[in-house]
Design a protein around this nucleic acid. Structure first.
Lengths: 208, 208
DNA sequence: GCTTAACTACACTGCACGGTGTAGTTTACT
DNA sequence: AGTAAACTACACCGTGCAGTGTAGTTAAGC
């Protein structure tokens, strides 16, 4: 459990804090939280274990901070990709498919890529039984809400027909990101095929 | 790792073996593999830890057997539901939607329900890094292949239009089971809505 | 240069736990 | 009843590891 507030923690150096969180994130994703020792995080971050305890107090708190940071990073990534790929979509229907494909590809190819997202999702799901606040941090629905807003705009200019924008956003995510995550190790051509198939199915389902 | 074959294992009693696997399955799903002790499995199964080691040799082997058993159970469940709900589908398009909804609901409401499937999937995903054979046992693609065969039949009688049957099966699973798993704790009415929305989107995407 | 906070490198503690051995008890079969 | 396999209940061992304390070193600020 997170430390009682009476335990003094140190703010310390931003660079070291960042190194710890990055190292922890990588190890938690590849090894799982339980199988990752704090010693291993310390070694990977290039700091002493004593420092980690001085900064975070205990192991669970490291996980909380990792997930907080990842959720914020994901939202920023989705927001940027949407603004740049979906924002300029014009009234010409033939550009929507290409924009949606680029939107998915862009997110999948960033630091917060498909396998990273999939691993983090799994981590939250596994550990939420013991740290329920993790789920709150992760399942904000902010990315889906943002996407639903764009879809609503597309409906207004006649490109989509929606009954429930948020459901459409969920379906879009299921047809693209989710299936992509299942084949995170696939070659680039296969991954492009998955995205294209998913976007096309979505458009057939939601075109006027 | 699984025990070297020189270690003598005992077949023992089918009832005790079953009790061990059931207890292990429940605990692995709720607590995770790493956080579940063999002592806890023994207590939940009502056998001695010595017996567990006599039957299985080590902890990883328990996990292998649990996943084997679960994958077989899932396939049986999907096969039965498909045979009974999709098998009798006639040429009248209006019955297809209802059949697909019943097919999903039936699987989701069985022992191998949405939350159990989701937990097992997560377990395999987490542990496969250390026991790669787990993934082989789980990702057989047999349920998807079976579903794709039914979809191919529906195409022949004019109910669907497919380019790639297996991709359509993936899309169907993504739009229904996957989204249902995300809201495993939702009330029954919400779960029914998720299934109906997903089936309808699928049909819009794949109807001729 | 001096002071102090930050940090490292170790050692240590207590506990959990995978796995093993063994003696006594129970069960099944002849 | 006798025999042997199956099982239980414990104790034990070695290892890993979360978390803590402490002395020495380093870095930053005045």
């Amino acid at each position: 459990m997170p430390p009682v507030e009476t335990k003094p923690l140190r703010a310390g150096s931003a660079a070291k804090r960042s190194a710890i969180l990055l190292a922890a994130r990588d190890l938690f994703m590849t090894e799982g939280f339980e199988r990752t020792s704090v010693d291993a995080v310390a070694a990977a971050a290039g700091v002493s274990k004593r420092t980690i305890y001085d900064y975070f107090g205990d192991k669970s708190t490291i996980l909380l901070r990792v997930v907080e940071s990842a959720a914020a990073s994901l939202l920023a990534s989705v927001t940027e990709a949407a603004d740049e790929e979906l924002g300029p979509v014009s009234e010409a229907p033939e550009t929507l498919e290409a924009s949606l494909i680029r939107f998915v590809a862009r997110i999948s190819d960033t630091t917060m890529g498909s396998d990273a997202y999939s691993s983090l999702r799994r981590l939250v799901s596994t550990e939420a039984a013991h740290l329920p606040v993790l789920r709150d941090q992760w399942d904000t629905r902010e990315p889906e809400t943002l996407l639903a807003e764009y879809f609503t705009t597309f409906e207004r200019i006649g490109l989509l027909r929606l009954a429930k924008p948020l459901t459409a956003a969920d379906h879009f995510g299921a047809l693209t990101f989710r299936l992509l995550q299942d084949e995170a190790d696939a070659p680039k051509a296969r991954r492009h095929e998955i995205v294209a198939d998913g976007v096309q199915a979505f458009l057939r389902a939601y075109r006027p």
